[in-house]
Computed example of a mutant assay.
Amino acid sequence: MPLDSLDRSTPAFFRQGLSSTLKLILLGALSIGLMFADHRLQMSQPIRAALSMALMPLQWASLLPGRLVDATGQYFQGVESAQDAQLKYQALTISQAQRLQRVEQLEAENTLLRELLSLQAQHPTNSKVCEILYGVQDPYSEKLIINKGSLAGLQAGSAVIDAQGVVGQVTRTYPMRSEVTLLIDRSQHISIMNARTGVRYVAQGLPNSMGGALELQYVPTNADDQKDDLLVTSGIDGVFPAGLHVGRISMVDRKVNSSFARVLAYPASERKGRHVLVISPASKEARS
């Protein structure tokens, strides 16, 4: 190859432009100029707005998992808070219902006590208000135990009444307790009078009839006794004062082949309260 055909220019590897220091100075000046122009003229604001709009879906997608986690946690926290609030509300409702029941019970007891006190005012010297402690668990008798006995002046044979009428009779006394046999006990007999007709009878307890009833003894078939007639104490037995409510006639069965009618009555006393009034026998009061 002829020598004059060779390329004698400097290779690109050995070519050098501006020095690195000069490039740094120029680029630094350009950066300062651009920053100054952007600060003064807001040249990059449209570019930033466009980039912000373009990157918004990406930002929303990147934040979505965290938001879902937060929303799930808030949901379960809200469910737990709602359950706790429901339990507290139920407990409060039950507590308020119990308080309301106690208030209603106290109001009923106060009403019955007022009625007993009004009855006691009619027998100021020979009556005492007593509390029912419990009922005797005996399938063959109907009895109660009250909280006063012989030390309080109670004596066997005393009448026991409540606001509705006759409950029974004191049949046994102890120093601090007394036993009351209910009017519906089979061993109990009481002299009564039909308040409408004025006819007197003797009633016996029937514990197994109508949940506890009274049967009038030896009632003639032609007697003028009707359903719902009021029966009161006659006072001639010397035990119960006259005029106390005993019950109302619930059934009159006049049989053709019998000389006596079968007359049943339900007792006036329902023993709703915890207190009763004990009245000393009328005969002993008269002797005193």
Rank of each mutant, 00 (worst) to 15 (best):
S52L: 15
L3T: 11
A282F: 10
Q164L: 00
Q16M: 10
N126W: 14
R177E: 03
A85R: 00
P11Q: 07
L119Q: 09
G243F: 01
L154Y: 06
G168I: 12
P11I: 09
M35H: 07
A286T: 09
A163Y: 03
M251C: 02
T197G: 05
V136Y: 03
Q122P: 01
N208D: 15
A37L: 07
R177F: 05
D253K: 04
R48A: 13
S19H: 05
P124F: 07
E270D: 02
A265K: 04
D225S: 05
R172W: 11
S95N: 13
A265F: 01
T233W: 12
A37M: 05
L26E: 05
T10I: 13
D7T: 14
P11E: 09
L41V: 01
Q120K: 11
A108K: 08
H189F: 06
V246K: 13
Q45H: 12
M193P: 06
Q90V: 01
Q59L: 10
Y140T: 09
S250K: 06
S20N: 03
E142P: 02
L64G: 12
A163M: 00
M176L: 15
E115W: 03
G212H: 04
Q122F: 04
A108L: 15
Q120M: 01
T181C: 03
K272R: 02
K128M: 12
R102N: 12
R254E: 06
S250D: 08
V263S: 02
L154S: 04
A54K: 14
R196N: 06
P139A: 01
A152M: 08
G273P: 00
A265V: 03
M35T: 07
L206Y: 11
I146E: 00
A82Y: 00
A49W: 08
S9Q: 15
R40A: 02
T21C: 02
R99A: 10
V103S: 08
Y218E: 11
A203N: 12
R99H: 05
Q90P: 02
Y201C: 08
I47F: 09
L64Q: 15
P2D: 02
T10L: 15
A54W: 12
V166F: 14
A54G: 09
K148E: 12
Q217C: 12
